[in-house]
Design a protein around this nucleic acid. Structure first.
Lengths: 154, 154
DNA sequence: TCGATACAAGACTAAAAACATCTTATATGT
DNA sequence: ACATATAAGATGTTTTTAGTCTTGTATCGA
């Protein structure tokens, strides 16, 4: 009963980009190091974020990722669901036909309510808000100024 | 991102028992057939419900399971967590120390809120309510009168 | 008291999902 | 052209889920 790590990684990635602002290009390697995500795994996650239209991926030398949208217009729900698909707590929610009379089933209604509430909570939160405060899942880095000597190019 | 099937099965089991009322003994086989749960799997689930003090298991010929508590005092949360452990949406919730500065992390706070809300919703719902209405996860059976000829002893 | 019946408890297994990693290909700036 | 980046999918490992099997124990009733 948990969201996947890939989902968490996706949030870290978008959060890192959000701190740099929409349109700023950041290399995959930098994001991977700073958010503590395996680089190849990040690549897969980024592809899903790109397909969802949240980020853009630039290939070639000096390539990288950048946000396509303003951070305040990106919600946690969007990011999570871009990666793990629509959140559904169980079969009762995702495949109501698996039960016999789901339309009138109380259990079913409770699950649906819980599921919808969870999604609503995640939808309320955007990345401008997240980026403006401290976040645990990033290595600390100066909010202004991008060139941290400890990062290096190699 | 889903509760396990075992959790759903546990709810079916308790719901079935709730419809028979606190204290009524029902055989495992009957519950398994009527709730469409593999009998041996139900045994494992029942053991967890018993350890949590929700049901009592009686061995021997004519043994079976029965509710120890009034259905209105049993919540969905209790049943689910008796089986899958405390609900936590992700590592960020279950192991805050896995992040660096979780105490001040916005992301962390959102997850915690979502998690707590989910648990609250499940806690609001008790099995007296659930049992009083239609439910999809049970084969239909007459609410009054226990001896359905289609069940048979064999 | 013996046998049939019912559950206990844990070992075991199969399949799926999660969590990556690796390899080959492609794109881009210099 | 070459160095550097990412793409994309094949592959591999580990963990979890879901379920089964086997052996043992408890209770009832003839």
């Amino acid at each position: 009963m948990r969201l996947t790590r890939a989902g968490e990684y996706g949030i870290r990635c978008v959060l890192y980009l959000a701190r740099h602002g929409k349109g700023t290009l950041v290399s995959r390697k930098e994001i991977a190091v700073r958010t503590d995500v395996p680089p190849h795994f990040l690549a897969k996650i980024a592809q899903q974020l790109a397909r969802a239209g949240i980020i853009e991926i630039l290939q070639g030398a000096n390539g990288g990722y950048r946000l396509l949208t303003d951070p305040e217009r990106i919600t946690m729900l969007e990011v999570i669901e871009a990666i793990i698909g629509e959140i559904s707590l169980n079969d009762c929610v995702s495949r109501p036909e698996s039960c016999r009379i789901s339309a009138r089933c109380t259990v079913h209604r409770v699950w649906n309510k819980a599921n919808q509430q969870l999604r609503a909570t995640l939808e309320e939160t955007n990345f401008a808000t997240l980026a403006s405060e401290d976040a645990c899942c990033l290595t600390p880095f100066p909010l202004a100024g991008d060139h941290d000597p400890s990062m290096g190019k190699k």
